[in-house]
Write a protein that binds this DNA or RNA. Structure first.
Lengths: 199, 199
DNA sequence: CCAAAATTAGACCGACCGGTCTATATAATC
DNA sequence: GATTATATAGACCGGTCGGTCTAATTTTGG
């Protein structure tokens, strides 16, 4: 093969196509509402491939898709931090980015993790951990950036959590109202709080 | 019967029991993940009753459950406004209320509307409208309270939307982390913003 | 008391669910 | 080129899905 194992080749291995298709469908419709047959059809793969690459079936595929989405979003967040000078600018820029993605998907894709997060039931340990981990990583990335601005660690942690809350919530409202303004507004409000917390 | 049509009697008519059971299950697990058979079993009603009271089946039942939940939450919000003196106090009190409910349900019930909101697909017009309406009503209730404090209407509207975003997002994080602190924290942050906006 | 309406009851339906399994094809390794 | 992993392919399974339909029962109104 042209790439190393785990990389997605341009013609795309079926494993990568399955993750991509599952990610998109879970993102838009949710976990329970998405059938394996839809995923298979979207990925152009037979069932055998799915259970070869993901012995745990739908749940394993979801875990992989969740992790991929988390990686991508965390990378975007950190990239946005490098682009902007400070944490406040990062947050505003990230809000704009998310708002743009939401519009581009015609308001069908908000936060890929939240969709699954609300379907997790006590007992779904794998999914619960994946979702928890995703939020924890974003919170850490946000906290790192805010602390780098000289904000007191305790206040920085609180602001990171609050920023995450506000943006997650705004994504839901924006998706529902088919209007990305709430996301940009939330980012602006939070950025303003972060600026006020700087020494 | 002891009550007028539409009221839920104490022994409870099957219509009311269906709405209650559906509300609870959709709230905890989501729409797609909840089967009719579970709802029927929880309500102790046969299928005939469901399709008699809700000719549109699962979707109609969900709409009714969503409306009931919205009514209850809006009433709580307005009651909290009467209890507290001002909008900021109302928001903090409401955050505490939501946090308490989340804990009481062992972190299985966050926002009943958000769960369904994220499963709505373009074409689900009834559900989309119900969800949109729920958020709009809460936003209005929040805005009314903030305006009553003398905050400029434009700023009050923005703060109401932001408050809703923050609390909705916090409910997701709190449910995921099994820790209600994000909800109280979000309410505190928003309340502080509202106080700062007063004349 | 009886007819009419409202409600309950659940058997039944085709479609689809996620998952298993065997057979085949394609690559990698010797 | 033979052998062994790796991956593809899809028929097939029991179970459950949401929904329909007929019959029995209860309640209501005259």
């Amino acid at each position: 093969m042209s790439g190393s194992k785990g990389d997605q080749d341009r013609p795309a291995g079926s494993r990568a196509r399955l993750i991509a298709a599952a990610g998109r469908l879970f993102h838009e419709r949710g976990y329970a509402a998405t059938g394996l047959s839809e995923i298979l059809a979207a990925a152009g793969a037979p069932k055998g491939s799915l259970y070869h690459h993901f012995p745990d079936g739908k749940a394993g595929l979801a875990a992989a898709a969740l992790e991929a989405a988390t990686d991508a979003l965390e990378a975007s967040l950190r990239a946005e931090h490098e682009r902007a000078r400070d944490a406040a600018g990062m947050i505003e820029g990230y809000g704009a980015l998310l708002a743009g993605w939401l519009e581009a998907s015609h308001f069908t894709r908000g936060c890929p993790v939240a969709t699954v997060a609300l379907e997790v039931t006590p007992g779904d340990d794998v999914a619960a951990l994946a979702v928890q981990g995703a939020f924890a990583r974003w919170r850490k990335a946000l906290g790192d950036a805010i602390r780098a601005d000289g904000v007191a660690p305790e206040r920085a942690g609180a602001l990171a959590g609050f920023a995450l809350s506000a943006i997650e919530g705004a994504l839901i409202l924006a998706r529902t109202d088919r209007d990305s303004e709430p996301v940009r507004a939330a980012a602006r409000e939070v950025a303003s709080l972060v600026r006020a917390a700087r020494p």
